[in-house]
Write a protein that binds this DNA or RNA. Structure first.
Lengths: 120, 120
DNA sequence: CCATTAATTCAATAACTATTGAGATATTGA
DNA sequence: TCAATATCTCAATAGTTATTGAATTAATGG
């Protein structure tokens, strides 16, 4: 993740519809969802509007697409999201580890929803 | 962190000068830096331009300010950064913990620059 | 091949954002 | 109080971005 990619990713995430799409796909898992289903989840946004935002997100690298019959399936690009987080917080602890460990804890908390093997 | 705050934060981070300011302040630590020193680090950007970006960042909650004599000292708002990361990745592991643990590892890596007690 | 479904592309418009330069406010020390 | 330093505010302008609606491309089944 370089600065240019990070700027593109943050710009993509700074728009309401696109942020909602990313969060929906993050919870949807690696299988992803077809564009039409995503559009329905966005208050039934028009197809051209969805296409605009989905391609914006894909160009920024935050989501990926694949065709499946008539549908195009979009899914979250988890490595890009990890890279973005790492880029933003890089070198946050120069001499002060206590400053960014809450960020680690906050993120780690999302990985233990109902399981008991919290060794991640 | 709610959606409105997250949108504001991502918009703030989607501009080159502002992203650089945040990353500079993240590495600068809790003590922060005066506006003038930040401006010099930004290719000597004009004071009105710096003021515009610094107040944009402060309004988004990503940085905080305090006056010290003639200077205004800006510093990273670490809890806001943690909250933003958590908001973006919330519920990323619904049934697939292996999907977001790389994000946790990437972030955790920034917290162990030269220490040996990597139990964070 | 035609109709249908799914999604994209394009041009026009409206809305928003960043930069500039001039001027204002705040603090300090002589 | 005056001059200098540090930063902010404001208005104008230039540049960027989102939405709409119509037209287009792609895949499937009858």
């Amino acid at each position: 993740m370089d600065e240019k990619q990070a700027l593109s990713a943050f710009a993509a995430l700074s728009q309401e519809t696109r942020l909602r799409i990313v969060r929906l796909l993050v919870t949807a898992g690696p299988e992803g969802m077809p564009a039409g289903a995503i559009g329905e989840a966005m208050d039934g946004a028009s197809s051209s509007r969805m296409s605009f935002h989905l391609s914006h997100l894909e160009q920024s690298g935050l989501i990926a697409s694949r065709r499946d019959g008539r549908s195009i399936i979009y899914s979250a690009a988890y490595p890009a999201l990890s890279g973005l987080v790492e880029f933003l917080m890089r070198d946050c602890c120069q001499g002060h580890p206590e400053v960014c460990t809450p960020a680690v804890a906050a993120l780690a908390a999302c990985c233990v929803p109902a399981k008991d093997n919290a060794h991640a």
